[in-house]
Design a protein around this nucleic acid. Structure first.
Lengths: 223, 223
DNA sequence: TCAAAAGTGTTCCGAATACACCCATGA
DNA sequence: TCATGGGTGTATTCGGAACACTTTTGA
């Protein structure tokens, strides 16, 4: 019985929800896209293992990490009996410098709307779908969406993120009204100028402290 | 690296939420209360392992089973590096016949409101608390409460179950009104007579079929 | 006829929804 | 001055919360 970890890492790049995949350099499944992951060592928790493997295999540092599910189908790995503890992580769209290592011939961000047409290694498609379900649920009742955005963002960007992930049409005005009533955002004293059209937008920052205090007093984040 | 499973089994007996614990017959933690569980075999999934161990160690058959979380602290088991996949299960309060086996010197139902004063083996207290959190959340948006009740139950019993688990005062009238509007219950053509006081109560049965149809059409169970 | 539990209805309030116009900016 | 995207307000509707009386039953 061997134990591995796998990580479904999401980011939000160019208004699209992306997932981090590596191209496997070795068999089994050589050449196929796969999640980052690997064996758990004797002296580390599964969470530590995920962070270590991500660092080793891709060089990324997460803003959020959560255990997803443990997959234990007997036939899930051709190398033998391998149980995997899957995690999902979120990362702001900073310029991610990938450090290729021997296990991966390529590393990249793939649009989640496209991955269904790819041929993923092992049961990794199943794991990604599980992660997507969890993300879509969780983003509605925990303020984790901010971990997919840069530190400073506009209301429209926040709104577009939610539209993209929940893939439905949310009324922009109602969404912003609701979010402002939550009172979890700090205005920052400058505005953005992405694109050179139209009015400049106010930038905001998530106020983690405020959220924790509000939560302790019974506030429930709920979109 | 060894892999085990542990099961937090709940039932609802005498208007109290109970958890199934065994008294360990051997070291480590001999004599302490613990969850049912054990090693995962090479040719079975973790879910199959839980069901097998529950059958072996206690003889109970679950009405509901769900994976909870995988616990992997390096020091969580004195026997060495053991990662455990925890599950929680629900079972209706039928007369459960326990089959004692060599691993357990005793098996019993313990009120969840009392277990905090007991000395549980390993990190099993942590696991039970995790399961309680999950149950309290999930019962509010999936109709799993019925798996803690007998096939036929009264509205008042259903209401009391929710009050007990969510330990807060829910308005009885609003609760019943809401549940009736869901239209997920079948009236059965007889009434109960528990106790010999007061008006007899209509008995109901959960209509799983109706729920699945409604769910497919977009219905969301939500207390 | 009384005590105990079951069963039911109405009002009120707040949140969600639907919906449209004005503002700031740079070309 | 115009096109583009940012920012705000109101009316309506629906569901949740608060709340009290009548009915059935057995002793």
């Amino acid at each position: 019985m061997k134990l591995t970890v796998d990580a479904v890492v999401f980011s939000y790049i160019e208004n699209q929800l992306k997932v981090l995949l590596i191209k496997r350099a070795f068999d089994p499944c050589k050449g196929q896209l796969a999640l980052a992951g690997g064996y758990v060592q004797e002296d580390e928790t599964t969470e530590q293992a995920v962070l270590r493997k991500l660092k080793d295999e891709t060089g990324v540092n997460l803003d959020y990490l959560e255990q997803l599910y443990t997959f234990s189908d007997v036939e899930r790995d051709p190398r033998g009996r391998i149980v995997t503890v899957a995690y999902y992580g979120l990362i702001a769209p900073i310029k991610t410098e990938f450090t290729l290592n021997k296990h991966a011939s390529d590393i990249g961000w793939y649009d989640v709307n496209d991955i269904f047409s790819y041929d993923l290694a092992f049961d990794h498609m199943k794991i990604i779908n599980y992660a997507l379900d969890r993300l879509r649920n969780k983003i509605q009742y925990e303020p984790i969406g901010f971990d997919l955005l840069p530190q400073y963002f506009t209301m429209t960007e926040l709104w577009m993120l939610y539209c993209e992930i929940l893939n439905n049409e949310i009324d922009r005005r109602n969404f912003i009204k609701k979010f402002k009533k939550f009172d979890l955002l700090k205005q920052v004293p400058f505005k953005n100028s992405t694109g050179n059209k139209g009015r400049k937008a106010q930038l905001y920052e998530f106020d983690e402290e405020k959220y924790l205090v509000a939560k302790r007093e019974g506030f429930n984040f709920d979109i």
